[in-house]
Structure formats: C-alpha cells, structure tokens
Design a protein around this nucleic acid. Sequence first.
DNA 1: TGGATATCGATATTGTAATACTGATAAAAT
DNA 2: ATTTTATCAGTATTACAATATCGATATCCA
Lengths: 215, 215
Amino acid sequence: MKKDVNLTVQALQRMPYYLQCLRKVKENGIQIVSATAIANELNLNDVLVRKDISMICTTKGKPKTGFIVDELIENIEDYLGYNNTMDAILVGVGSLGKALLGNSEFNKFGLNIIAAFDIDEDIINQVICGKKVFAIEKLQNLCERMHIHIGIITVPAEFAQEVADKFVNSGIKAIWNFALIKLSVPEDVLVQNENLAASLAVLSQHLRNEMDENK
Amino acid sequence: MKKDVNLTVQALQRMPYYLQCLRKVKENGIQIVSATAIANELNLNDVLVRKDISMICTTKGKPKTGFIVDELIENIEDYLGYNNTMDAILVGVGSLGKALLGNSEFNKFGLNIIAAFDIDEDIINQVICGKKVFAIEKLQNLCERMHIHIGIITVPAEFAQEVADKFVNSGIKAIWNFALIKLSVPEDVLVQNENLAASLAVLSQHLRNEMDENK
DNA sequence: TGGATATCGATATTGTAATACTGATAAAAT
DNA sequence: ATTTTATCAGTATTACAATATCGATATCCA
Ligand SMILES: NC(=O)c1ccc[n+]([C@@H]2O[C@H](COP(=O)([O-])OP(=O)(O)OC[C@H]3O[C@@H](n4cnc5c(N)ncnc54)[C@H](O)[C@@H]3O)[C@@H](O)[C@H]2O)c1
Ligand SMILES: NC(=O)c1ccc[n+]([C@@H]2O[C@H](COP(=O)([O-])OP(=O)(O)OC[C@H]3O[C@@H](n4cnc5c(N)ncnc54)[C@H](O)[C@@H]3O)[C@@H](O)[C@H]2O)c1
C-alpha cells in the first residue's frame, strides 16, 4: 500500500463503496475484475475508478482483464485502517449514542468505542452493549491514559461545543460530530460532521422537483 | 423565495449551517448581518456566502451593513421546506430506527415520520415514540393511500435492496439510506446515503497523518 | 460636508475534480 | 499468424465550484 499519499475526501468516501462492490464480486467467485466493471456497478466513470485504485494500490492492472480482486480488497482495507483498530470514546448516551454503542459493524471498519460518558446520573456506571458509561469529569484522565484520539459527540447541539472543548483539552485529534452545529476547534483537529439536516435538504429539493414535474 | 432555482448539493448542504448561524445572531438581538460576518463565523469565503444567499433569497443586501436576518431565515426555511412538512415512513425498527423515530428534531426540519415497518413479529404493532410499527406487507398500501414519497431505510445492508425495491413499487421518490450499500433504483428516485464508513475513512486518514507528523 | 470604510453585486480568475482522449498491451477471435 | 477487442496507464481537456477582483453604494466619522 502507498501509505504516504493522501486521497481527496471525495476519493476517500468512494473507497467503502469499492470495497462493498469488490466483496460482492468475490462472493460470486470472480478473481479478476476490471475498473470498467466496478464503474458500471457503482455508476461511476471508469477512468475515475482506475485513478482511485492507482492512488492507493501497488497492484497493476492487466489490459483486457483487470485487477486481482483480493489484492484490491487488501490494499483498500489497509488504507482505510480496517486492519489496525482505532480506539474511540463517545459522549452523550441518549438514543443515538446507544445505537452507536451497540453497532457491531464499527469493528469491521477499524473503530472500537472503548467507553462512553454522560452527565445523567441515571446512566453513569451503567454498561451499554458492553461499554461502561462514566461521568463526564473522568473524560480527560481516561483519554490521556489510554491515548485516545477519536471522540464521538452525540449530545444535544447546545452542549456540543463544550464537549468539543473538553475533547481538545484531552488530546483528541478527530471528532465525529452528530450534533447539528458548527464546532470551533484548533486547526490540527478534524471535525467530521454527520449532518442530517444537510441530507434532508437534498431529499427535500429533489422531492420538490419531482412534484413540480408531475403537475 | 426563488423556488424555481436548484442549488448545487454543496450549496444546499451549507444552508442548514447558515440557518444555525443566523438564529444564533438573532438570539443576540442583531437584526442585520453581513455575508462577511457569516463567512467568518462558519469559516467560509464571503463571496461564496453572498452567492449562496443570492441564489435563494429575494432580499437584497445593503452595502456597509448587510442583510436583514429575519428575511434570510425565512427565505432559507422556505427553501428547505421547513414550513411545509413532508411525510415519511421508516423500515427497520432496530436500534438506529428507534433512535430516528424518537428524534423530535426532525419536525423542525420539515420531516414527519408517520409510521414504521419491520418483519420482526415482536416489534410489529408496538408503538415507538408515538409511531406505530406495521408488518412490512402493509407498506405499499399505506404509502399509496397516504401519498408518501420519502422512505427511510434502517435495515441491515443485506436487506436494504429489497426494501428499496418495495419503496420504488410504492411510489416513493426519495430514499434516505442508512445501510452501507449502494442501492439500484430508477433515475427519478433519489438515494441519499448516510454512509458512516465513508465518514470513518476521513477520520482515519486524518488521524494517520497526525500520528505520522508527531514522530 | 467630504473622505474613509465596509459591504454589496457582478464579473473574472483560479483551482481542482471528473471526464475524454491516446497509445500500449494482453487476451480472444478469425 | 493476424486481426479484433477490451482494458490499462498516462496525459489532455472539460466542467464547475470556490476565490479574487472591481466598481458602486450606503454608512460612519472627521
Ligand atoms: N436521535 C437521532 O436520531 C439523532 C440522529 C442524528 C443526530 N442526532 C443528534 O445527536 C444528538 C443526540 O441526540 P439524541 O436523540 O441521542 O438525544 P438524547 O437526548 O436522547 O441524548 C442526549 C444525551 O446526552 C447527554 N448529555 C447532555 N449534555 C451532556 C454533557 N454536557 N455532557 C455529557 N453528556 C451530556 C444526556 O444526558 C443524554 O443522555 C443531538 O444533537 C441530535 O441532534 C440525533
Ligand atoms: N446502529 C447504528 O449505530 C447504525 C448507524 C448507522 C447505520 N446503521 C445501519 O443501519 C442499519 C440498521 O442498524 P441497526 O443497528 O439498527 O440494526 P438492528 O439489527 O438493530 O435493526 C435492524 C432491524 O431491521 C429489521 N429488518 C430486517 N430485515 C428486514 C426487512 N427485510 N424488512 C423490514 N425490516 C427488517 C429487523 O427486524 C430489525 O428490527 C444497518 O444497515 C446498519 O449498518 C446503524
């Protein structure tokens, strides 16, 4: 794997789809696949797929046939870090927080939520899906001691910034933010927003177009 | 509002952030705001903000001062459809499905989940957060009868395509897909993917960069 | 009242992601 | 053996989103 390169965010986000497609191909017993075939399956341009592959894979494709499926899968999994797990903590054990804690699929993606935090006395010290919930005061100590660099925010929007600040003080470098708010953090800290309102906006516009067309 | 225009997906996704920012400004008692100020708050380019605003707002800005906050808020809310609610149904009442059903914020964004569907006998006929869970067989009839055009998929990936097919047959035109799989649907149906694996990929790459730098 | 300044809207430029093109090559077909 | 075909890799082009520039204008301050 070429681990020194950096993909664009767009290319990076296509990778899980490639992986899904490649695994499906593999299940069908196919060992060699062309970029064209992947592109058709995922409704992408074939040159784009070839370029994405060339960015992170050492494997070369063979004309007329394509790439070795197993090698592509391995290269992509390596690049995405599916083979060496990152530890993370989660703050806000409400309904969304619980759903995330219970999501067994994260392990497959190299993410391991090792603990959760909340302010609600009723939740603190409970164990949710095998993960203990601590008082928020214990956040910094635990993060530093365990060298945690990923934090997940699932508290209501009005508390998200104060949680983010705590994260920053605890050495967290990547924040996965499910609250609908723009967080302020230092440059070296990445915020990945999971913004449902933005998604809804896309759905809503499409629907309006559809309705307008049919009348 | 200029409801005949279509924003790019990027612009559309910025809108909820503008709204959040404008509401905060309004709370502080400020009635007029400049594109520059919004841009600074959200770490965007001021020309970009001005252009986005001009796309969907009838309001003109005044040199030296800016735009009337209330008018911007109203225009954006209108464009995003926050004022006329869209009805939706959800399939897959697992941990994520339940979290979404219980999310009271959706109403603020113009989304109203009116019912849910599952195959699990234990869940069918239950009422989760005021929403009744029906057997999946009742999907088509209910969608057609209630003129539902938005469907939410929160079933495991392997069942997502069959649910999508049922959606298409029931007249659904916009699918909000939380399963990690690329769905095949007709052209006129929009799929908005909420792909956690893609987000994780971004977090993972950033973290690897950070780690590499510090050694 | 006149000059300085911040912002606007419109237009030009830049930058980057996606796509098209070209020659090379391996496999299949004639 | 030769031709055809599908694909690859590299390079060129295109398309479009983001940013910079510029004249106009409303407000503020001397
Ligand atoms: N529920 C959903 O479907 C959903 C989906 C996407 C995003 N979100 C967002 O996720 C966030 C949480 O949503 P939810 O529905 O789980 O809410 P919730 O009210 O069920 O849970 C919030 C939890 O955060 C805890 N909390 C509050 N302040 C805290 C603090 N300062 N420190 C630590 N813990 C704190 C509360 O005790 C509670 O347990 C919200 O911002 C929401 O917009 C929710
Ligand atoms: N849990 C999370 O945090 C989370 C986050 C993001 C995305 N997702 C995705 O959302 C999906 C659901 O996740 P989950 O954790 O809620 O799973 P879950 O197992 O808790 O729930 C799945 C539900 O779907 C129902 N179901 C299965 N097949 C069905 C069918 N054909 N028709 C109708 N209902 C059916 C099941 O009965 C169950 O109630 C998965 O694809 C997962 O990858 C989960």
